[in-house]
Design a binder for these strands. Structure first.
Lengths: 215, 215
DNA sequence: TAAACAATCTAGCGATTGTTAGAATGATTA
DNA sequence: TAATCATTCTAACAATCGCTAGATTGTTTA
């Protein structure tokens, strides 16, 4: 039957519609930003360092693949992921990329200034320590993102406010800073600042999407 | 720092290399075939109904993304997935596609001739019944694929041999047929044949990749 | 009601991709 | 050693994609 061939082509083409969304670096960056919560087109454009027009064009692709939903609020249009499983796919795809591409692993190593700045992501023991107050889990993302979702026991000090709010942090306990995920440089900057100021600080690679994706 | 922007672009571009692989329908089909086990270029070309040259070109993309590995055996070159997580990503991406794209769900409905031909994929109870011998789990893929990996308690009768080997199957128990996954039509054809011959048969959407991906 | 604003739509450019066909490679068989 | 076979490499073309700029839509503010 030639018919069977046509049906199959149709099915795989539909799946490829989803794959296409994840085939452009800018789109991936937008997805990662949307993993942090609802955002307007303008915010997305700024954070991804691209024009509003181009952002809009990429968001159109996401919309046509039904991976995002929009709502109008005043003059702005707010975008959000249509489902948690979109964030999960982003996590799985970048995890696979890190497993398979040496170039990516090498580039990531440059982000962690010192290899031991990185916390070994043993979630259970980290959470245990956080619960007991032995370590301070610090969310350095903008506060709206923290309010949308954050790691258990995390405290919020956005990176731009960190310098002025250093007094809020204890010097006798180690600080575990995290941000949007492994491709976000905010936690790295925070750790550098904290260490300069005499704090004991490490950098947690995972963001909320990575944390949520593993159960 | 302009520098940060450059690093980020580099990181997302690397991830996009993986995404690009999953953005073409033919490549998706090849990945699904490779989920069934090692295959030669010629076999892949036949199964995907495309020329050897085009198959080779697509396999080149998979190779350059380090998602497959090759070995020479006699005159043939055998391709296999570089890691189980590649199969897992295929499963997750087609699952997300089914969740988000109505068009895909509609197309899939046409595959199951009767809606109740589909077994509700409650794995535990299916396995329980299979263990007790209350149902026969039937793998209708080519036997090499069965030998590479199959569902627990499954029996192998390739679709092309099914008509001659009907006598091997009991008429007093229900038969659960499966194949390569939800986009493969072999199990559907098997169920149609079995029902025509008076067997009680249903169609299991999942293949070994889907089964393995969920723990 | 007019002006300002956020976002989308349309058109067009160069770059990339999917596909095909012909030449080249590398292993096996006669 | 020559001939054959499976596969890859190269070149070429049309289709698609990423991006930019200008016109357009729909909403809010003056």
């Amino acid at each position: 039957m030639k018919d069977a061939r046509k049906i199959k082509d149709l099915l795989y083409e539909q799946v490829a519609r989803i794959g296409k969304v994840f085939s452009s670096s800018k789109r991936l960056e937008l997805v990662e930003l949307l993993c942090q919560g609802e955002k307007t087109v303008e915010t997305l454009a700024q954070e991804a360092s691209i024009s509003v027009k181009l952002t809009s064009a990429h968001l159109r692709e996401l919309r046509m693949a039904h991976l995002v939903e929009t709502k109008r609020q005043g003059k702005n249009i707010h975008y959000r992921l249509a489902d948690k499983s979109v964030a999960d796919l982003w996590v799985q795809i970048h995890t696979l990329a890190e497993e398979r591409l040496i170039e990516l692993r090498l580039a990531l190593q440059k982000i962690a200034t010192q290899p031991n700045d990185l916390v070994p992501s043993d979630r259970e023991s980290l959470m245990k320590a956080a619960r007991k107050g032995e370590v301070v889990v610090l969310d350095v993302r903008p506060s709206e993102e923290y309010l949308n979702a954050h790691l258990p026991f995390a405290r919020s000090i956005p990176l731009d406010e960190l310098r002025q709010r250093l007094a809020e942090l204890p010097k006798d306990r180690s600080i575990v800073a995290y941000c949007r995920g492994p491709y976000c440089l905010m936690a790295k900057d925070a750790v550098e600042l904290l260490k300069m100021e005499g704090y004991s600080a490490v950098h947690l690679r995972e963001g909320v999407a990575e944390w949520a994706a593993s159960r």
